[in-house]
């Protein structure tokens, strides 16, 4: 068996009727590596996440995780293979407390009927573990509030805590700092660097390039569903294809300059 957290993607393609969202993408992630995934809107980043986490099966290609073929496995089984994720548009349990949101993800794999009764000692272990995750993302003091009452940055941190509670060896973060202020973004980057990355492989989708180059040693760029560049952050961000995909040609830049 390969070391935990290794991901191999070969020739991955996803078509939605006439639209090809992802075409022939290869990607390799080594154990413990952090990869940044960038690309303009609609370039296939979330589709790639959805394929890895089993939202839908690919039209072609293979995904293997830790040496096992997981192509087309359903989402809850993939999650139990210890692939965790967060969502660009948050998916919390709004009317459960912050504490319960994290607790729901722990032991999710065990059969529910065996979970009707949990001993006192096991419950203390569980409580400690959940509170540790909340402390890591700075939400320990809000454990008893409803998830819906948190501000956006808090909800994103809660989603991260929930994903971490399932102890994934591969973590997919979809715009973890989306909609955050610069200060909140720095805080999030720090949490990811200290608590999410050690001991696991991570793929981060993010438009905030400062944050990405701080977290990831390698970047992969998608455009129109194809991989157009891959390498160190510096090299990728100087690649002319990437500049064109991201910023448009120089002509276009001039035209759009006043708007931005």
């Amino acid at each position: 068996m390969a070391s935990p957290g290794t991901l191999r993607i070969e020739g991955l393609t996803k078509r939605f009727q006439a639209l090809t969202a992802l075409e022939d993408v290869d990607l390799a992630l080594e154990s413990g590596e952090a990869l940044g995934l960038i690309g303009p809107n609609g370039s296939g980043k979330t589709t790639l996440f959805n394929l890895i986490s089993g939202v839908y099966p690919p039209s072609a290609g293979r995904i293997s995780f830790n040496g096992n073929d997981i192509t087309g496995d359903p989402a809850h089984r993939i999650s139990r293979r210890s692939i965790g994720r967060t969502f660009q548009n948050l998916r919390l349990f709004p009317r459960m407390t912050v504490y319960e949101n994290v607790r729901a993800a722990r032991h999710a794999g065990a059969p529910a009927l065996s979970q009707l009764w949990v001993g006192r000692a096991a419950r203390r272990v569980e409580r400690d573990a959940v509170m540790d995750r909340l402390a890591e993302v700075g939400l320990a003091d809000r454990a008893e509030d409803l998830a819906a009452e948190l501000p956006l940055a808090g909800q994103r941190r809660l989603e991260l805590a929930r994903a971490l509670a399932a102890k994934p060896t591969l973590l997919l973060l979809d715009e973890p700092a989306g909609g955050m202020t610069p200060a909140e973004t720095d805080h999030m980057a720090e949490i990811i660097a200290t608590h999410a990355m050690p001991g696991r492989s991570v793929i981060v989708v993010e438009h905030k390039l400062d944050m990405l180059s701080r977290l990831c040693n390698r970047l992969c760029v998608l455009n129109f569903g194809r991989k157009i560049a891959e390498g160190t952050a510096d090299a990728v961000l100087r690649n002319p294809d990437v500049l064109e995909a991201y910023l448009g040609t120089e002509d276009e830049q001039d035209r759009h300059a006043p708007v931005d």
Binding site: S53, A75, H76, S79, R80, G84, R85, F87, R91, L92, F93, A104, A105, A108, G109, P111, A112, R162, A166
Partner: peptide, 8 residues
């Protein structure tokens, strides 16, 4: 969210 938290 329940599905991606591993809930069957």
């Amino acid at each position: 969210a329940a599905r991606y938290s591993g809930i069957n």
